[in-house]
Write a protein that binds this DNA or RNA. Sequence first.
DNA 1: GTCTATAATTCGATAGAC
DNA 2: GTCTATCGAATTATAGAC
Lengths: 217, 217
Amino acid sequence: MAKVATAHETRAFETDGIPARERLLACAASIFAKRGYAGASMAEIAAEADISKSTVFHHFGSKRALYLAVIETAAQDFAATLETVLEKTGPLDERLVDFQCQHMGHILSNELVTDLVLRELQKSQSTESVHLVRDVLSANFMRLVDFISEAQSQKLLNEALDPSVAALTLISANVFFFQHRKVLKHLPNFDYADRPQPYAKAVIDVIFHGLDRDRSE
Amino acid sequence: MAKVATAHETRAFETDGIPARERLLACAASIFAKRGYAGASMAEIAAEADISKSTVFHHFGSKRALYLAVIETAAQDFAATLETVLEKTGPLDERLVDFQCQHMGHILSNELVTDLVLRELQKSQSTESVHLVRDVLSANFMRLVDFISEAQSQKLLNEALDPSVAALTLISANVFFFQHRKVLKHLPNFDYADRPQPYAKAVIDVIFHGLDRDRSE
DNA sequence: GTCTATAATTCGATAGAC
DNA sequence: GTCTATCGAATTATAGAC
């Protein structure tokens, strides 16, 4: 009781209390990821966050809404990183390497939520969830496509290529690596299984320079 | 009964009876894919193939073995296609487009088994299963890597790139498209959601020519 | 089919901040 | 005084056992 009162005093400004909400999102992410949507109980999430169940429902109206908020938060986290990376200046190949490595790093360091999102995407339930997931994720995707388009109009990238296909190819490479990183170890002649960052860079080497033979450095 | 006897007579050589075995594999593939490994019952598979349970166990010693055989068969099916495609002559970009389209077509027309394989790869259970799966799949992967390496030594492809990374990038693009084809429809500015073959071609455009600006047709 | 355990959701009240 | 975060208890809903 005394502890609760103390916690109240620590937040001085901001209309809605940030600490509890954030703690809640973090715990929810971990538990949803560990047990899946159905397997996770609001009671466990509340306990983990050291908050009463009712408070959870006060912040997020329902289990579903909490779940969506978890995913949305993860996407927005990456959106921030994305902005930082794409705003930089420098040679295009270096910026692409930077993007690819940051993206790889992001999905690996948030592996639980990444698994969650991938699982969610796979069951194509036409509920509100997927709609929102797609809306949220597509914002990041569009940001990357715009970046590529922009570079094309400035003649910095090959204009003949479809920017959305290029963007998706980049993302595919990272996601595939992420999903199968455990078994990739057993591919003969594949040196990158436990070196995600070098792999991300090698992918950009392929996609930026192209497989075509006429390379002159 | 008469039909079965006839079938027996048609096979003159080969130690194990082919027609029943094939029918069995097809039914098993469909049922494993529909119900998952645990959910599938040997009784249902036997019934579907119009074969007695004992016959199933005669051909494949166990449920696990049947399951593995299904996956192995799918991989070998593709190995045949792969050989046909890679043996062709012609400009490298056309051959790569051919490969990418054939591969896309293969995973789409075998979508149930593809889902099965992908699910199997994701749970990295270190049992015999995964070992075999990896061995089988890696044969096809190596075939593609060898093809790229070969082309590189003949100066037909950019020698600076890692052939296994290039191969994996190709496969990643198709698999990602396959896994998320349902939700890709909802990406704004993405025209390929229901056009897998054009997408496969567009991916090769990107990976063959590269994002780099200095394209001179 | 009822019974029961588990989990989601709602209600009413309290306390501190402005 | 209103607003919002918080809680404990009460109320459905659902899934599995018998």
